[in-house]
Simulated assay, not measured.
Amino acid sequence: MTETIVLGGGCFWCVEAVFQRLRGVMRVQSGYCGGHVDHPTYEQVCEKNTGHIEVVEIEFDPREIGFDDLLGVFFETHDPTTPDRQGNDVGPQYASAIFFQSPEQEAVARLHIEHLQDRLGVPVVTKLLPKARFWPAETYHDNYFERNPHQPYCAFVVSEKVNKFIRRFPDKLKTS
């Protein structure tokens, strides 16, 4: 039995690369969520007028990793305090967002955000949104970091996120 969650934490290449390495995660698919255009393209989303957020749809086994642990990794590997921005990536498509798939996920996410805000002492701007239509990204985005590790953005930005995850969560890495 698996569960699904949709998370936006900046560029989906970064988020995908982190969650692919997380024990208990069965599948990670980059895509778009929350907008008003059917079948959006990367180019349309980058124009910043479709309302979509770059996200990943994560299928996970709750017997191997809890939803709260997924959120812990999510919040430690992106900045949930900058609206519509992750580093040099700026625009509404880079919003920090959780598209909850059930009332239980919503309740856990809401508590996680409240505790994180108390710990940080600054507002957490992560959007907590109900389940919305997920549109898979174009296939050239699949496993982007794995296929393009020397591309400059991957070498300097994605690799840093992955390395941060590995340093922070060595006990949560997949073994194979």
Rank of each mutant, 00 (worst) to 15 (best):
R27Q: 15
T126N: 10
R110S: 15
Q105F: 12
C11Q: 08
G87T: 07
G10K: 10
S102D: 14
F134S: 13
T139Q: 08
R85D: 10
Q86H: 13
P123F: 06
Y153C: 03
R119N: 07
G31M: 12
P80D: 08
L120A: 06
Q101A: 12
F60C: 12
E47K: 11
V124G: 07
G10L: 11
A95K: 13
V108N: 05
F19I: 00
T4R: 07
D61P: 04
E54K: 08
E114R: 15
P136L: 05
G72V: 01
G121E: 07
R167H: 15
L22M: 08
Y144N: 07
S176M: 05
R167M: 06
H141C: 07
V125F: 07
L7A: 06
V55N: 07
L71A: 01
F67R: 03
V157N: 06
T82F: 09
D38H: 08
D84E: 15
V158D: 02
A137S: 11
V28N: 05
D118E: 14
S30L: 04
D68V: 02
F134L: 14
D69N: 06
G24E: 06
D171L: 10
L7D: 01
G35F: 04
P80G: 07
D68G: 03
F67M: 02
C33N: 09
M26I: 14
V55H: 05
H78T: 01
D79R: 03
F75T: 00
A97F: 05
Q86G: 12
F165C: 05
H52A: 08
I113E: 02
T126H: 13
I53V: 15
A97C: 05
F60K: 06
T4D: 11
E59S: 13
D79I: 02
G9E: 08
Q151H: 12
I166G: 04
S159L: 13
T77W: 00
T82W: 08
